[in-house]
Amino acid sequence: MNVTITVNGKQFTHDIEPRLSLAQYLRENLDLTGTHIGCDTSGCGACTITMDGNAVKSCTVLAVQADGSEITTIEGMAQNGEMHPIQAAFKEKHGLQCGFCTPGMVMVAADILKNYPNPSEEDIRHGLKGNFCRCTGYHNIVKSIQLAAETIND
């Protein structure tokens, strides 16, 4: 099937199999390997991207379903080489270790901050429920998102 998808501001058209997940499409067809597949069944959140502004698990969306939509992946977060405030906050607060869950964490954080511009710790933890991190114990991820909120609000 032919699909046309806008990813990080660029439009792509591909002829793809319906069974291709959006995560695979991003990784295999567009070489955007920042979107990681940790469980492939929407349990871990590593594959989180935003689709028309909403965080979704790209392993559980068919690429054909994304036809006509606007996707942002982790590769699209930095602008002109400058890290997005969420990315910068993760670095500042040591919100990552092995880095594998990190793209998903950053992308879901964007959704959390969209809905909760001044999130409480509870809002953040509630918002991170769909994303596993096995390295950080979430402590510094929560701190990172708190810092990102402050930076964005400033």
Partner: peptide
């Protein structure tokens, strides 16, 4: 119900 991403889809 679910989580942010699941609720979005």
């Amino acid at each position: 119900l679910g989580d942010v991403q699941v609720r979005n889809r």
